[in-house]
């Protein structure tokens, strides 16, 4: 029977309303709504569908790292259908490397057949954790998945990956790390019975220092600045004048 580990990140839903904190080192968090990273939600849905369609899944474990508030997103994962959750408690800033080390430490506590996660978190946009995890564990990687199928014995997987020019299908032995892209699926909403049963499912808290990780972050954010480009915002009234604008812009660029 297979075990699937789904790491997930709590991220702010910041559409259009980003402000910086007083120290200019991070964003102002007060007033923001917090969600499960949308790509991780797709990864969890992918794991749930493998259980429903392929079968042979003993356990789907959701994992997050951070403050006690991350339990909220883990409860959502349990309500969607994960069997149990692990919250690695730490208050300090994590980079992709340390996040991957945390996932690797939890992976080593049980025999997992697959780690499936979002390709990137929509706050820091690094797109590194899954790749580093594969390198730490020394297992195959299938990044940016838009389709995943697993053989009956859970010994190998065929994963269609989004690439710049289209797609490519990778065959990989399991255990492996898969990171998922947008088109893998549309995640379900937690059902009411799901939300009720989520309260009964185990959510284990583990302090970071209990994992035996020796090193700290490799990349540190020292300051932030809001970006923004002032555009001209000139309203054009007719299609004819729009055509002239386009011709002028192109003529200007040629010189």
């Amino acid at each position: 029977m297979a075990r699937i580990l789904v790491p997930l990140k709590r991220v702010p839903d910041f559409e259009g309303r980003l402000a910086l904190s007083a120290g200019q080192r991070s964003i102002e968090c007060s007033g923001l709504r917090w969600i499960m990273n949308p790509f991780d939600e797709i990864a969890l849905e992918g794991a749930l569908r493998l259980r429903e369609t392929r079968g042979g899944v003993e356990e789907i474990v959701a994992l997050s790292a951070g403050g006690v508030e991350c339990a909220q997103q883990l409860r959502t994962a349990l309500a969607m259908g994960a069997d149990r959750a692990v919250l690695v408690r730490c208050e300090s800033e994590l980079d992709s490397y340390l996040t991957a080390e945390i996932i690797a430490a939890v992976y080593k506590q049980a025999r997992y057949d697959m780690v499936i996660a979002g390709k990137q978190a929509v706050d820091t946009d690094a797109n590194q954790t899954g790749q580093i995890l594969a390198a730490i564990l020394g297992v195959p990687l299938a990044p940016f998945a838009s389709a995943v199928s697993v053989d009956e014995r859970w010994s190998s997987a065929e994963v269609t990956c989004e690439v710049d020019s289209g797609w490519e299908t990778l065959r990989i032995a399991l255990p492996a790390v898969i990171t998922v892209d947008l088109r893998l699926n549309e995640p379900r909403y937690p059902s009411l019975p799901g939300m009720i049963s989520a309260k009964m499912k185990p959510l284990q808290e583990v302090p970071l220092n209990a994992l035996g990780i020796e090193y700290g972050v490799r990349v540190r954010t020292r300051s932030m600045q809001l970006a923004g480009k002032q555009r001209k915002r000139i309203k054009v009234e007719t299609v004819k004048s729009l055509a002239h604008v386009i011709r002028e812009v192109l003529a200007r660029q040629e010189h």
């Binding site: 540190r220 600045q225 970006a227």
Partner: peptide
């Protein structure tokens, strides 16, 4: 946002 990051 722009971030200034240090690689340690």
């Amino acid at each position: 946002a722009y971030a200034e990051v240090e690689v340690l």
